[in-house]
Design a protein around this nucleic acid. Structure first.
Lengths: 351, 351
DNA sequence: CTGAAAGCGCTTACAG
DNA sequence: CTGAAAGCGCTTACAG
């Protein structure tokens, strides 16, 4: 049933040339007369010839394929993948996606395994892994080479020695801006509704929250700033809703930094259930700029994350590593604060 | 720098056997003594031998790879892909994702091209294409073979002769349940906030809305049921918010069927801007069951869509086509109505 | 139960 | 500028 596909030998026979000439005509590599080249291309086209990529790959030892490791949970990963795929395709690579689950060690093992498989010219992981799985490019000054293999492995995010996460997406420094801005606007009591401990981004946001509030409290100008603590600990908006019950009633007005928009939506709902008004009694910030957040009542103050750009940047780093080029310069910032109704009227806050 | 990976010849030499024996030991195909097999496996393991898949593929003429075509827009696609990938991996295939954009004709051409490339054992498209791009399996009674190629092509959704979409995800029949239930609850004036014309799912929801309202109006028991028309026409929640302005003020109470949750959120906000209360003055339904919809005030009545199952089902159909098996039986329903606050108190509506 | 040999479809020095 | 030949790493009849 599977009728044989035409091969370069067929093209050669029909065009009255050798297989080598067909190869030269198609790849544009050797030297070849324009007329010959044209005739070969015509014949190839006419019989619907498509080079067998497996054969080509075996001969050239280049698979033209990249592996991208993604996690199971976040919807945002698709936008990351779209950005990465855009850059990979433009560079002539096909991207294969592998989904991993499990602990850091398991993810790290999976990444090493894919790199060792020899099937790929490079591996990009969008989920954090231990540094030992990564190769460092020739000009990558800031990390010691850990993977001695031959396949470059690059990560969007990695763990440093204290198991903190480094990477664009895990950068939580905008939480500091939230806190400072709200302190300047007069808020004194702060709470954080955190995401799960095992998420690097969740830990980063929590840590920045705690240090920013501590710094404000240490500031002689605002000695009355106080942290009401870290609540929650999952990505469930319903948990966030329940967490509002733990905020003391006499703490109003209170400012809540939620680890993402779903949690922020839960906080709004939890506040309503206690008869609190947002933003009059409680202000809240989210993260991710989910589309619906702009339409909620009140609309959510949040952090817009340029996922496609993060994906593109990560893929650019992988391509550079494959080509032995220096690590490309960082692109623009991928985080942007979006102030909306959930933190009060715009004129009460800086833009 | 790229130090050569060990080959089956290396394993053979080290184990003191022939290359053929190594192949038999690894694939478990020929007949081989248990002791020999074990020794070969040990050697292979010890030198970290991994078969070169390109070479194997060239010899067996089986690539072990499937192409999945996905669109650029919907976040939900990731969940579809996850389901499809689960089934593909379990069957021993690697899945490669290709993103397409453009018109139906362009998408159709792209799918045909991928099928003709000979790189894949099968192609699954999650975006609608014309039937001419599809192959029909040997036992696929309900469609004539259009693609004469050798690579099976299966679609999650396809267009019929009237360019209507057929497929699980495009099934909009639950819109009918929304309308009928709201008519039974006493609502008489209905509006639809539609998605973009070029989306099959948007067209299907609009069509079912129109026919369901027409049917209710034709029912002697409810002759006063009336359609206020189709508003909107994009996936932008902000457009939906503005569309509320087109609803006549004297139409209250009104029931709005929105094509998805983002649009429904826009409708809620648009209603608030006109001083209308949801659900007292206006009830609204969405689609997709986005996580945040359960936390909004009011929470959104919606349709939960089992995207992973839709992906699994589509991949099962592709695998059956590849194996020449009959089309697998349909799984359970992938749509489930979720009644929430945006259509009024639960006790006023059936569950 | 095991090995020698052919061949999958390409590309690439090397001659001419 | 073009062709003959080798070889990428596997698998698979076919002998033995």
């Amino acid at each position: 049933m599977p009728q044989p596909l035409p091969t370069s030998r067929d093209v050669a026979r029909l065009a009255g040339v050798s297989q080598a000439t067909v190869s030269y005509a198609l790849t544009g590599r050797g030297t070849i007369a324009a007329a010959t080249r044209e005739r070969v291309l015509e014949v190839a086209e006419s019989i619907g010839y498509r080079p067998n990529l497996a054969a080509r790959s075996m001969r050239t030892r280049r698979s033209g394929r990249l592996a991208v490791i993604t996690g199971v949970t976040l919807d945002n990963q698709l936008r990351l993948l779209a950005g990465a795929s855009e850059v990979a395709e433009a560079a002539g690579y096909v991207m294969e996606t592998h989904t991993v689950d499990g602990t850091v060690d398991e993810r790290t093992a999976r990444v090493r395994d894919l790199a060792a498989s020899g099937q790929y010219e490079g591996v990009l992981t969008l989920v954090p892994v231990l540094p030992e799985a990564l190769t460092s490019g020739p000009s990558d000054r800031d990390g010691e080479p850990a993977n001695d293999g031959t396949t470059p492995v690059v990560a969007e995010a990695t763990f440093d020695e204290q198991m903190r996460t480094l990477g664009d997406l895990a950068d939580a420094s905008t939480v500091e801006v939230f806190v400072e801005t709200l302190v300047a606007a007069g808020y004194r009591r702060f709470a954080h509704v955190a995401g799960p401990e095992q998420y690097a981004s969740a830990r980063a946001r929590r840590d920045v929250f705690l240090s920013a509030v501590a710094r404000a409290a240490a500031d002689p100008a605002t000695p009355d700033v106080v942290s009401l603590g870290v609540l929650g600990g999952s990505w469930s908006g319903d948990d966030a809703r329940r967490a509002v019950a733990e905020i003391p009633a006499d703490a109003l007005p209170v400012a809540v930094i939620a680890a993402n928009d779903h949690l922020a939506a839960g906080v709004v709902r939890g506040a309503a259930e206690r008869g609190w008004s947002v933003p009059a009694d409680l202000v809240v910030t989210g993260w991710d700029n989910v589309e619906i957040g702009a339409l909620m009542i009140p609309s959510l103050t949040t952090v817009d994350v340029d996922f496609p750009e993060a994906g593109r940047a990560a893929m650019r780093r992988l391509l550079a590593a494959i080509r032995g080029e220096p690590r490309p310069p960082a692109g623009g910032p991928i985080h942007r604060l979006v102030w909306r109704e959930s933190t009060g009227p715009a004129d009460a806050l800086p833009t």
